[in-house]
C-alpha cells in the first residue's frame, strides 16, 4: 500500500492515539480499516482508508495487522509530511510490517520495521440509525467551539431546535453558549452550516472526550454531527476524493 503523502497517516494517528493505544487494522481489497473502543468504553472510533486513498494498493489475501500506536508514532515521526509511504505486509511473515518513506526531491529513502501485536480486538456492531438531527459545519469551527467551551465546563450540551444548534457548557463559576444558524449565503460548501432535524433535541456529552474527537479536523474541512435522543452522537469526518473517513461514536451523559 503506497500513500502519496505520509501526512494522512500522521493525522489519523493524531486523531486516535489519545483514545486507543493499540488496534487491529483490517486489510482487504477495499482498503484498510480499523475500529476500536477506548478503555473507558465511552468512545468508539472507526477509520476507513479506501483504495482510492492510495497511489497503489494491492491486498491479495485479507490480513489483520495488530498495531501498537506508540512505536508506530515513533516511526511515522521519521517521515516528512510530503514523503511517500509504502506499507508492506507479507502473508508469509506476519510478525512485522515494513514502512518505507521516500522523498523524491531529495532522493532520500528510509525504511523501518514495525513489530505486529496479537490484539484481542472487540468488534462492536453499530446499528444503522435514523438520526433525529444532523448538523454539518466547518470542522475548524466545531473544533474552536468545543475547545473554547471545554474550558468553561466539563459538560457540553448540544441542542437542536428552530433557533439553530446551541452548544452550551456550564462550569462552577461560568456558563457559556454558542448558537449557530444554518448559513445559505456562504458560497463554499465547506464553509456552510446545515441543520436538519425532526424533533428538537438536547443531549449532553463529556467535553474532554469531545475535545479529543476534534483532532480529526486536520483530516477534513467539514464535520457532520448525527444525533438521536438518548443515543451516542456520531461525529463523522469525510476525507476528500472518496479517500475514506473517520467516525467517532460518543456515549451521552444521562440522568
Amino acid at each position: 500500500a503506497r500513500l502519496p503523502r505520509s501526512a494522512v497517516l500522521k493525522k489519523i494517528l493524531d486523531s486516535v492515539k489519545d483514545l486507543v493505544k493499540e488496534t487491529n487494522w483490517d486489510c482487504n481489497e477495499e482498503g484498510m480499516s480499523m475500529q476500536a473502543l477506548d478503555t473507558g468504553r465511552i468512545v468508539l472510533v472507526e477509520v476507513m482508508l479506501r483504495e482510492a486513498a492510495f497511489e497503489s494498493y494491492a491486498c491479495e489475501v485479507p490480513m489483520t495487522l495488530g498495531i501498537d500506536m506508540e512505536p508506530f508514532g515513533k516511526v511515522l515521526r521519521c517521515a516528512g509530511g510530503d514523503e511517500k509511504v509504502t506499507i508492506k505486509a507479507s502473508r508469509n511473515d506476519q510478525d512485522h510490517i515494513e514502512l518505507v518513506f521516500e522523498n523524491e526531491e531529495k532522493e532520500r529513502m528510509s525504511a523501518f520495521e514495525l513489530k505486529l501485536m496479537d490484539i484481542d480486538g472487540e468488534h462492536m456492531a453499530v446499528p444503522d440509525a435514523e438520526w433525529g438531527a444532523e448538523i454539518s459545519m466547518p470542522s475548524s469551527e466545531f473544533k474552536k467551539i468545543v475547545m473554547d467551551l471545554a474550558e468553561i465546563g466539563s459538560d457540553l450540551t448540544i441542542a437542536v431546535s428552530k433557533l439553530g444548534v446551541t452548544f452550551t457548557a456550564q462550569g462552577n463559576n461560568c456558563k457559556g453558549s454558542m448558537v449557530l444558524q444554518p448559513s445559505t449565503a456562504v458560497d463554499k460548501k465547506s464553509e456552510q452550516v446545515a441543520i436538519s432535524f425532526t424533533e428538537p433535541l438536547e443531549m449532553t456529552f463529556a467535553a474532554p472526550y469531545m475535545k479529543m474527537i476534534t483532532k480529526a479536523a486536520a483530516l477534513s474541512s467539514t464535520v457532520t454531527l448525527s444525533l438521536d435522543e438518548a443515543c451516542p452522537i456520531c461525529v463523522r469526518y469525510e476525507m476528500e476524493d472518496n479517500a475514506g473517513h473517520i467516525k467517532y461514536y460518543l456515549a451521552p451523559k444521562e440522568d
Binding site: 468504553r41 465511552i42 468488534h123 456492531a125 459538560d155 451516542p232 456515549a251 451521552p252 451523559k253
Partner: peptide
C-alpha cells in the same frame, strides 16, 4: 448530576 454512559448499552457484539 449526569452520569457518563458507556457504549455497551447501545452497541452489541455481532
Amino acid at each position: 448530576g449526569l452520569r457518563q454512559g458507556t457504549l455497551h448499552s447501545f452497541f452489541s457484539k455481532p
